[in-house]
Design a binder for these strands. Structure first.
Lengths: 180, 180
DNA sequence: GTATTCTACCTCGGAGTCGATATATCTTGT
DNA sequence: ACAAGATATATCGACTCCGAGGTAGAATAC
């Protein structure tokens, strides 16, 4: 998704793509060559991108990659109806968010945000005692677990706040375009 | 790490462990049977835990798992000197944090928190233009990317604040025990 | 001249994870 | 009496991903 998402902005070569994906995922989680290049080839085989060899501006020759219509369609399908992991896993969610603007319909964008919003709504029970009963933060002995739950709660509220404002904005815009 | 960390609190059987790990990791990212049971066996082979068959209190018989001294040592090694991913990947970091109290020396605990603190300090450049120059949040066209960077910044500050207070507290305590 | 470094691409083996499948027990509903 | 569902453990094949290694061109350092 990140490869097609970046290519949708402008054509790139593999090495450049690697650095962009690395700085996006998490913060700086490098993507291994052994992951990137086979994935590019897979997307090429699936007609999602085309390759054009260009002389390297700095060193060895590059393969400039361009997204195709099939690739754009595939990207939009992934964004419109993301797998569960893209909603529940923070890392994946942030990747999705980075490319959600490529889904052009504000109503569809709002629906995706709503899924995340719904997920964040369910109260997080992280720790349980011997009997399996949830332990509230104030009864946790470990200051790290206490901090973990505090941070978790605080960051969730921050994101929920943003989501609500954004969903409202998108629905307003969807209403405008529908009533025109 | 999560298996040994939970067992360090009290003995558990696999099924129970599965639910606890699931509710901890991320928030609710279920752990597959095919991951859990082979891992338990691997830890057993490595003498990190012992197994004792007990009649199932509700249904089928359980294998009650108990951590050994070797297991405790291994857990502490993982916590004391975590791999890079445990510092930079939010999901992994939160798992580590959930068990950091098993590292009993406050000085060692503070050192791990300091590594995370140092990582959070480096400013996040998530998006770049065609020339490779970083794009500041205010010049981003996508509201989702803008929100992404806002949320990222805000949650980072929240965690940094907590880390600083916690590191200070731990160092105070380390000073006390050293001067006694 | 030559070594090093950065750019740029690619492949292979191994490790880890998942989903499907299987088995068995006990409780609950019908 | 029987079916369904939760509990509980285990394995296997498929898949993904990474890390190590290799190739090569161009710039820079020594």
């Amino acid at each position: 998704m990140a490869i097609l998402g970046f290519l949708r902005d402008f054509p790139l070569h593999g090495y450049d793509l690697k650095n962009r994906v690395a700085s996006l995922a998490g913060h700086v989680r490098p993507v291994a060559d052994g992951t990137l290049y086979p994935t590019i080839k897979k997307l090429e085989d699936a007609q999602c991108l085309t390759r054009r060899t260009a002389p390297g501006s700095v060193a060895a020759p590059r393969h400039m990659l361009e997204i195709t219509q099939d690739g754009t369609d595939q990207l939009r399908r992934w964004l419109r109806d993301p797998e569960a992991g893209f909603i529940t896993d923070d890392n994946k969610w942030y990747v999705l968010l980075a490319f959600l603007h490529h889904l052009e319909n504000p109503r569809e964008q709002a629906l995706v945000l709503a899924r995340r919003r719904e997920f964040l709504d369910q109260p997080a029970q992280l720790f349980f005692d011997e009997q399996g009963a949830p332990i509230p933060p104030e009864r946790l002995e470990s200051p790290f677990r206490k901090g973990l739950m505090q941070i978790h709660r605080s960051t969730n509220l921050t994101e929920i706040d943003w989501l609500d404002r954004q969903i409202g904005e998108l629905n307003r815009r969807a209403g405008f375009t529908a009533s025109r």
